[in-house]
Structure formats: C-alpha cells, structure tokens
Amino acid sequence: KLETFPLDVLVNTAAEDLPRGVDPSRKENHLSDEDFKAVFGMTRSAFANLPLWKQQNLKKEKGLF
C-alpha cells in the first residue's frame, strides 16, 4: 500500500514540491480512503470505472492533476 498524505500536501502542488515517492500523475493514489471519498464523492472503485477522460477532468477540477 502506498503512503498517504493529507489533502493540502497534494492539492495544487507542483511535481517538484510533492513528497518523495509521489507520482505527480497519480496524486489521488496517495489520499486516504476517507479523503478520496470526500474529494471525489465516490469510492476508488467507482472512480476507476469512469472513462479516463472523466477521471482526468475530475482530477483537474479538484487540483489533483
């Protein structure tokens, strides 16, 4: 399991300012399950079932792209 970080560490943070080991294209993977659901309004599995373009739009909207 990946290390999780608080939302404010990941949202609207440039790649070079992210904690070590965080993939800038997969910031959402480093949210706790609770934060993930609070941000996206759905579970990880529901998010994973969305088309890629919709996932990317949601990530942009939430500052996690």
Rank of each mutant, 00 (worst) to 15 (best):
20 R>Q: 14
38 A>M: 09
22 V>D: 03
2 L>F: 15
20 R>P: 13
4 T>K: 08
26 R>H: 15
47 F>I: 00
48 A>K: 10
23 D>H: 09
14 A>S: 12
32 S>D: 09
50 L>C: 02
32 S>T: 12
46 A>W: 03
32 S>M: 04
28 E>M: 07
13 T>Q: 10
18 L>R: 03
39 V>A: 11
53 W>V: 14
17 D>R: 07
12 N>F: 05
45 S>P: 12
60 K>Y: 04
64 L>E: 06
15 A>E: 14
28 E>A: 04
17 D>V: 07
29 N>S: 08
23 D>T: 03
18 L>N: 03
27 K>D: 05
31 L>G: 02
20 R>V: 10
54 K>S: 09
9 V>K: 13
6 P>V: 01
9 V>A: 09
61 E>P: 02
28 E>H: 01
27 K>A: 08
14 A>K: 15
8 D>W: 07
19 P>N: 02
8 D>E: 15
20 R>N: 14
5 F>T: 12
25 S>E: 15
23 D>N: 10
30 H>D: 04
25 S>L: 11
19 P>R: 02
37 K>E: 09
33 D>G: 03
6 P>G: 12
38 A>K: 13
50 L>S: 01
57 N>H: 12
16 E>P: 11
39 V>D: 02
40 F>D: 01
24 P>R: 05
58 L>F: 06
29 N>F: 04
56 Q>P: 00
64 L>C: 04
30 H>W: 11
32 S>A: 08
1 K>D: 08
9 V>W: 08
39 V>F: 06
27 K>W: 07
27 K>L: 15
59 K>V: 02
17 D>Y: 04
46 A>D: 12
48 A>L: 12
29 N>C: 15
27 K>V: 15
4 T>E: 15
11 V>Y: 07
22 V>E: 04
20 R>I: 12
32 S>V: 05
47 F>H: 01
15 A>V: 10
41 G>R: 09
39 V>H: 07
12 N>A: 10
62 K>F: 02
21 G>M: 07
25 S>N: 15
59 K>M: 03
2 L>I: 15
26 R>A: 15
56 Q>F: 05
43 T>Q: 15
34 E>P: 11
5 F>G: 13
24 P>F: 04
18 L>V: 06
10 L>H: 01
